[in-house]
Nucleic acid binder design. Structure first.
Lengths: 198, 198
DNA sequence: ACCTGAACACCGTTCAAGT
DNA sequence: ACCTGAACACCGTTCAAGT
């Protein structure tokens, strides 16, 4: 939950660590405001560093996304542990997929980065998502043992479906000038999917 | 099926029409090669016109996407007419949703543009998609009358779901360096969705 | 009426020069 | 070891000048 978790094995110089933390903090704000395509130049500027410093710490956009998502993902892993101890494996799976989709919807554009990086160990985002895919598989298997679901689906398919529904629910409804209603379509769409698995 | 369908009511000057057609043709190639985010400057250049000419004919990217998709969408409308006369309304709905998803997958990034522009009459892409949403609703209603499906879903939800599955199936698997296998996940994912509607 | 292409503001990324 | 910021190649968009 602290930044230590993603920090390199050797301690960083004081100024380097200060810059690292400032960049991650500012990046979270920028992603929340402009989506995952926020300008990296702008993030560096607002963090008070040159663009080169940002690239030194985070060679590509995925690295920065990963660092800014560490806390949220650790919380998800904790949730998975709790749900694996839940008596009702079917309800646990529902809860899990909703939490997963909401995590993917932390920022606009994030579902795309996540689904695109699945199983790609070159991407730090993909590597860190593999634990989430594993958890999805374990929760699904438990639900199937209890006959709460009967369909035959891979953990990767389930993960991708949750991501794609998150994507669908997050597409801003830019209707004719009117401000987008913040309707939460996610539970309804997930319900549709789960209907098919039972 | 000809370009006439999207052309303005008054005839264009000969050179303007030549440029219009060249831009649309080149745009199709560029979108196929680089996805919907292909450089507009590059398209103008390859079509032998200045960037200003491209913007005169197509004030924004959606306008160009729409023009380059005219033929494919007209073919879809014809398919809808045929499927509405099909005796097996359930199979017709399956066929329709698959065709819809494949249409959305014509180019990388297209599902995003389509779903984002739904119900937005300011976008020519959104306006032209509304006929597809209508057709989806009619085919779904017919399937429900035959009890081939029982779920209660809006035409817009169905359309969005098809688009999101297209999106999921089209995310390039950029695995560790190996070239992406061109696996076609779409039918399997759509089958999962349809299972939930029956 | 339509086209041209220079011009502007922006962005990601690199790298020589600093401390 | 780390940071800086100029520099490069690019992009979308506009608009005065042409024909």
């Amino acid at each position: 939950m602290s930044i230590e978790a993603a920090a390199p094995t050797r301690p960083m110089r004081a100024d380097a660590r200060r810059n690292y933390e400032a960049i991650v903090r500012v990046a979270g704000d920028a992603f929340a405001e402009h989506g995952t395509q926020a300008s990296l130049d702008d993030i560096a500027c607002r963090a008070g560093v040159g663009p080169g410093t940002l690239y030194r710490h985070f060679p590509n956009r995925d690295c920065l996304l990963e660092a800014a998502l560490v806390e949220s993902r650790l919380a998800l892993n904790e949730l998975a542990e709790q749900l694996l101890a839940d008596d009702d494996a079917g309800a646990a799976l529902d809860t899990w997929l909703l939490a997963l989709a909401r995590h993917a919807n932390t920022w606009d554009g994030l579902p795309d980065s996540i689904v695109q990086s699945i199983n790609n160990k070159q991407s730090p985002l993909g590597a860190s998502c593999s634990t989430l895919v594993d958890a999805t598989g374990r929760l699904f298997d438990r639900a199937r043992e209890q006959s709460a679901v009967t369909a035959d689906v891979s953990a990767r398919d389930l993960f991708v479906m949750a991501g794609s529904l998150a994507w669908a629910a997050s597409r801003p409804r830019r209707d004719t000038g009117a401000r987008a209603e913040a309707s939460d379509d996610l539970p309804r769409l997930l319900g549709l999917l789960m209907r098919g698995l039972r």
